[in-house]
């Protein structure tokens, strides 16, 4: 058993290893405003292309995806930014989030005076959330460690054994091609941290809500950009538990430093 990790108590979201304030755009039309707010207060956000002109199973699917992201243990508070006429209505999304977490607010562009008005109102609301919901430090003994097994890493069972011996819970996602879909899945599974084995022809990548430790293979691409990976396959057995402990305690991974993380949402039907 490794020593306890110093994390943050995030109420019903659980204990997290990051203290993220999430600016959540309910629709693509509010992603730019969300980014401006996030930049101003050093919060996390992400661009996405959803929330409107969706039909069928995608309505509940995208709504649920956003709810899961806002309910992630690494999130301290969530500010929803809506446009006003979208399918996934910002204030309704916020109401659903509020049922689980008090530290939720929303602002709507069409009701807040446009872009500048909403940036101003959003920054103010986000600062209020920060003041009202000061995170309490918490000791975490069991991490939920996600594994994005994009290249069918042969040492996966050894790694799983190592992590479990250290007291962690392991969630494995076998992605057929890209890490982005795995990350979305692992975020919904509330992984605190993810170890990514991108396929030999895929670059390392990240996700806004959790640190991703990227493991380099011996492929030409990975060796050419070795500096963008946190660790090599050959170092896994000896170093992974210490690396996880360090990252969980606050050391930024390379993907976090690069602020990388375009999310890929689960979709079934074309936009209308």
């Amino acid at each position: 058993m490794s020593s306890a990790i110093k994390g943050f108590a995030h109420g019903n979201r659980g204990n997290g290893i990051r203290n993220h304030q999430l600016i959540l755009p309910s629709v693509i039309c509010s992603t730019h405003v969300s980014r401006r707010i996030a930049t101003e207060i050093d919060a996390v956000t992400f661009a996405h292309q959803h929330g409107c002109a969706i039909i069928g199973d995608d309505v509940a699917g995208i709504d649920n995806f956003f709810i899961q992201l806002a309910d992630h243990p690494n999130v301290n508070s969530a500010l929803v930014i809506g446009l006003g006429c979208e399918t996934i209505q910002g204030q309704e999304l916020a109401a659903k989030l509020l049922e689980r977490n008090e530290s939720t607010q929303y602002r709507i562009i069409q009701e807040s005076g446009g872009v500048e008005g909403t940036v101003e109102a959003g920054v103010k609301a986000a600062r209020e959330l920060n003041t009202s919901f000061v995170p309490v430090s918490a000791e975490i003994t069991t991490l939920r460690v996600g594994i994005d097994n994009g290249r069918q890493f042969p040492g996966i069972s050894t790694l799983k054994g190592l992590l479990e011996a250290a007291g962690h819970t392991v969630i494995i996602s076998d992605s057929p091609f890209s890490s982005a879909e795995s990350f979305s899945r692992l975020a919904q599974e509330k992984a605190h941290i993810v170890i990514s084995f991108p396929s030999e022809t895929q670059p390392p990548s990240g996700f806004p809500l959790f640190p991703v430790i990227n493991v380099a293979s011996s492929s030409i691409l990975h060796q050419a950009i070795r500096a963008d990976f946190d660790i090599a396959e050959s170092q896994i057995d000896a170093e992974i538990t210490a690396l996880i402990e360090s990252v969980a305690n606050g050391t930024h991974t390379i993907a976090e430093k690069n602020k990388s993380g375009e999310i890929r949402a689960p979709r079934v039907v074309r936009s209308v």
């Binding site: 039309c29 730019h32 292309q49 872009v115 979709r267 039907v269 074309r270």
Partner: peptide, 17 residues
């Protein structure tokens, strides 16, 4: 002036066309 550079790829996903 506001720097709005939104972009979205159009996909069919599982929709048959």
């Amino acid at each position: 002036r506001g720097g709005h550079h939104e972009f979205a790829l159009s996909r069919m996903y599982k929709t048959v066309i």
